[in-house]
């Protein structure tokens, strides 16, 4: 036989789990609808089968090409140097994520250059320099207040001249509703192309895992300004679940590449869809 309808109580409970994980009401209702449709079609036997269906439907919304196996720090791409530009709103963990990525690439035998293009926030350059020292990779910098595009240009030039494998450019945190600051990002990106025509190869948008529905607007606006190609979700070592990324990944078709799980050098993982979905239901 099997059941073709999910109990209201189960659906209510599911709604609560998803909403309190920051999935958002719209995406939550979509997920519930998908499950109801699927169940009316396929039927299910017992709770464990229903749970499996549920997780499958949630995972299906996370954009493709982001299975762990495809991201390899020892061979990030056939581009050399491979240029990653890191963007996001204030305080989400951009600089820290760069430190962690540099550590991973270096460990995988790659030569890495960092560019301190946050020339605005107090001691942002020093912070990246300390990460550079920790990991043992060079940091290209200029004075505070100098043109970030010029720092990016310098970084690409010297990394290229030194035959580097990976370049990661830090940028100042900025709220996505500030038009001038968003235009500045577009400019930084364009200037890079004077040195390496197809750079940046990756624009990594960093989202704070404790952020709520505003992350949607962040993804929308940063994508407009810089064509974001990948997401990193930080601070998932806390109690926040980062569920908003499900709707974002689905709507903008941007894969999640990394998650941040702490403040240390090693606290970065390649995103694993199933584990992430599993963690929502814990």
């Amino acid at each position: 036989a099997g059941k073709s309808k999910v109990d209201d109580e189960v659906l209510d409970n599911l709604e609560e789990v998803l909403v309190t994980s920051d999935v958002g009401i719209e995406t939550t209702l979509r997920i519930i609808k998908r499950i109801e449709e699927r169940v009316s079609r396929d039927k299910y036997m017992g709770t464990s089968e229903l749970n499996a269906i549920l997780k499958e439907e949630v995972a299906a919304l996370l954009a493709q090409n982001n299975t762990g196996e495809m991201l390899d720090f020892s061979n990030p791409s056939d581009k050399k140097p491979y240029v990653i530009m890191v963007v996001g709103v204030n305080g989400v963990g951009k600089t820290t994520t760069i430190g962690k990525l540099a550590y991973q690439f270096k460990k995988a035998g790659k030569s890495v250059y960092l560019g301190a293009a946050d020339t605005f926030r107090a001691a942002a350059v020093e912070q990246l320099v300390i990460w550079g020292e920790r990991v043992g990779v060079p940091v290209v910098k200029q004075q505070m207040g100098s043109d970030p595009a010029s720092v990016a240009f310098d970084t690409l030039s010297s990394a290229k001249a030194n035959d580097a494998d990976v370049i990661i450019i830090d940028t100042a945190g900025r709220l996505h509703n500030k038009v001038n600051l968003m235009n500045e990002l577009t400019k930084i990106k364009n200037v890079m192309q004077k040195v390496i025509p197809d750079a940046p190869h990756e624009v990594l948008l960093v989202l704070d895992g404790s952020t709520g529905q505003n992350a949607f607007e962040q993804a929308r606006q940063f994508t407009k300004a810089t064509e974001v190609t990948a997401l990193a979700i930080t601070k998932l070592d806390g109690t926040a679940k980062g569920g908003v990324v499900i709707g974002i990944s689905d709507q903008f078709k941007i894969p999640v590449h990394y998650i941040g799980l702490g403040e240390g050098m090693e606290d970065l993982q390649v995103f694993a869809k199933d584990e992430f979905v599993e963690s929502l239901f814990k």
């Binding site: 920051d22 709103v89 305080g91 704070d208 404790s210 952020t211 709520g212 109690t239 926040a240 908003v244």
Partner: peptide
């Protein structure tokens, strides 16, 4: 506290 914080604000 960051005003962009989501559901976890209560726990924290």
């Amino acid at each position: 506290v960051d005003s962009m914080t989501g559901q976890d604000a209560v726990n924290t």
